[in-house]
Design a protein around this nucleic acid. Structure first.
Length: 193
DNA sequence: TGAATGATCACG
DNA sequence: GTGATCATTCAT
């Protein structure tokens, strides 16, 4: 047992990216930085495929930035967006595929005080209701890029909770492939972005 | 609605 | 080298 559940291993990610994205909703994401654990329940994800997905960083050829996406499943992919914010992803499928799932939002459950401080907010729903808010709250940055899940103080836990109302729809903030319903989230959840 | 803010990528 | 773009957030 780990934080009230079972640690999610790398093999969880070596299958269909869309299934992984859906199955991650309801799991728990934690980060242990500086000896302090914080995190919460994953309430929103998005899938980015290696092929036939023009919105994905891996849609074009392999480059220095997206190389991590082509690594083994379970690898952490972090990148800087808009020069300001970080986004946190987990690599899926098999090595060389270039697919990943973006974790977009958490319902905070542990280390609230620390996350509020990092986010400079007093509102729980403002802690991790967005991909860059989440990385701020968990103190995730490019230092975690390319690391294996569970190896750098970042891990996912399955507490056996089932979510009966997972909805899907178009991804947020992209300009290409808006027709693909690759976003998964808990319906009517106020912690969704 | 738009500013902040900088790495990345395609081009040539 | 240069310029457009970008899986966001926050203040106006």
């Amino acid at each position: 047992m780990k934080d009230g559940g079972k640690l999610v291993e790398a093999n969880f990610f070596s299958r269909s990216t869309l299934k992984v994205a859906e199955d991650l909703v309801g799991k728990y994401l934690f980060s242990k930085k500086g000896g302090r654990v914080c995190g919460g329940k994953i309430v929103e994800t998005e899938a980015y495929l290696g092929k036939n997905d023009r919105a994905s960083h891996a849609a074009r050829k392999k480059t220095a930035r997206n190389a991590v996406m082509f690594g083994p499943p379970g690898t952490i992919y972090v990148y800087l967006i808009y020069g300001i914010h970080y986004c946190f992803n987990l690599v899926c499928e098999s090595e060389g595929e270039g697919a990943a799932v973006l974790i977009r939002a958490l319902k905070p459950s542990r280390g609230l005080k620390l996350m509020k401080k990092r986010r400079k907010t007093g509102e729980v729903k403002e802690i991790a209701s967005g991909p860059a808010k989440l990385t701020q709250a968990l103190s995730i940055d490019t230092d975690d890029n390319g690391k294996e899940l569970s190896s750098n103080g970042i891990y996912v836990v399955d507490r056996g909770e089932t979510v009966d109302s997972i909805a899907c729809g178009p991804r947020i903030g992209i300009t290409k492939s808006k027709d693909l319903d690759y976003r998964f989230f808990i319906e009517d959840n106020c912690y969704v972005s």
